[in-house]
């Protein structure tokens, strides 16, 4: 057995779509390279995040791993099973959550949904019932267990969707934007759950919420236009682009901007006034070294410093640096 839970090699996906008007005449053919030769190894028990803007190819990658979409070329293995050749084994060990409340039956109750899907994963009737109750309990849904899904709230339905993916206790979880459209408290709950209760599972999660990736992931793959641009822990990623720091300083009184710009090492300085408070932002290659000189100068100018902060770059800054594009436009 390999050490990696998920091994992706050279994975490429080209979509060719023809748009038809009537039954007979094809109007246009379009070629979209959704994935370009993607390589990714995910060791067991790790939580990896795919972070990228709309259309980056995140869902495509998840769907290929979930055996829903066939790759154009390249291979992907999950726990040593090939997504092409051993697809039925792959399906048995993965739990897929597409973050879409329509992926359960609205006409069935929460419990009926879970039992039904449990049966499809080869649980016996009694196992399925037991497991459904266990998950409903964990999701705090026991009270609503026999209510039809259509009568539940969006958040409750999402809980069922999430529980459904766990019904067969899969060692691998593929989560495609699991918190999309959830209210902040519930999204936070869900993230907490993923982080604390699913520690021993190998998880691949897509998102375009940076803080979600930042908070949850052991490693993040930044993906843009079908290519993985960078891979690393959130900290590493930020370190990698850390060729400057930004100092955020809140002041009482207007600073002398020209003098600040004249200081050696200062790359840029801007000031914005809000309610009589001036916010000064200074960027420099090495912020810590600059700090003392800057504070002295402000002191000399007779300006009171209220707040002082050296900010690290965000993942969005990283993304911007790598692709010239922001994740959340």
């Amino acid at each position: 057995m390999t050490k990696s839970a998920i091994e992706i090699k050279n994975l490429t996906k080209v979509f060719i779509s023809t748009r038809r008007r009537a039954i007979i005449v094809p109007v246009e053919r379009k070629r979209v390279e959704a994935l370009k030769s993607v390589d990714l190894d995910i060791p067991r028990g790790r939580l990896y995040g795919l972070l990228g803007p709309n259309g980056a190819g995140k869902t495509t990658l998840i769907k290929i791993l979930a055996t829903l979409v066939l790759p154009t070329s390249g291979t992907a293995n999950i726990m040593g099973y090939d997504v092409l050749g051993d697809s039925s084994y792959v399906r048995a060990i993965i739990g897929v959550c597409q973050g879409n409340e329509r992926s359960i039956y609205w006409k069935l109750s929460a419990r009926e949904n879970l039992v039904f899907f449990g049966r499809l994963y080869r649980l016996t009737q009694s196992e399925a019932k037991e497991r459904a109750d266990e998950l409903l309990g964990r999701m705090d849904l026991l009270e609503k267990a026999d209510e039809k899904a259509e009568n539940l709230s969006h958040g409750m339905r999402m809980k069922i969707v999430f529980a459904r993916a766990l019904i067969h206790d899969p060692p691998i979880l593929l989560l495609d934007e699991p918190t999309q459209g959830l209210d902040p408290t519930f999204a936070t709950d869900l993230r907490q759950y993923v982080r604390d209760k699913l520690k021993d599972k190998t998880i691949l999660l897509t998102t375009h919420y940076m803080h979600e990736a930042d908070m949850l992931c052991d490693r993040i793959a930044l993906i843009n236009e079908g290519e993985i641009k960078s891979l690393g822990t959130p900290h590493e990623l930020k370190e990698r682009v850390r060729d400057y720091d930004s100092l955020h300083i809140t002041l009482r009184g207007a600073p002398h901007l020209e003098k600040i710009r004249a200081i050696d090492d200062v790359l840029a300085a801007t000031v914005r006034e809000r309610n009589g408070v001036h916010e000064l932002v200074v960027t420099a290659h090495d912020g810590y070294d600059l700090t003392r000189r800057l504070l002295n100068m402000l002191h000399d100018q007779g300006i009171r410093v209220e707040q002082f902060e050296v900010k690290e770059p965000t993942l969005d800054d990283v993304f911007l640096q790598l692709t010239g594009r922001r994740i959340e436009d």
Binding site: T67, L68, A92, S103, W106, F117, L120, Y121
Partner: peptide
């Protein structure tokens, strides 16, 4: 139509 097809197809059923 109801949106469950993909989910069904991620299960190990033939």
């Amino acid at each position: 139509n109801v949106g469950t097809l993909e989910t069904l197809f991620t299960t190990p059923v033939g």
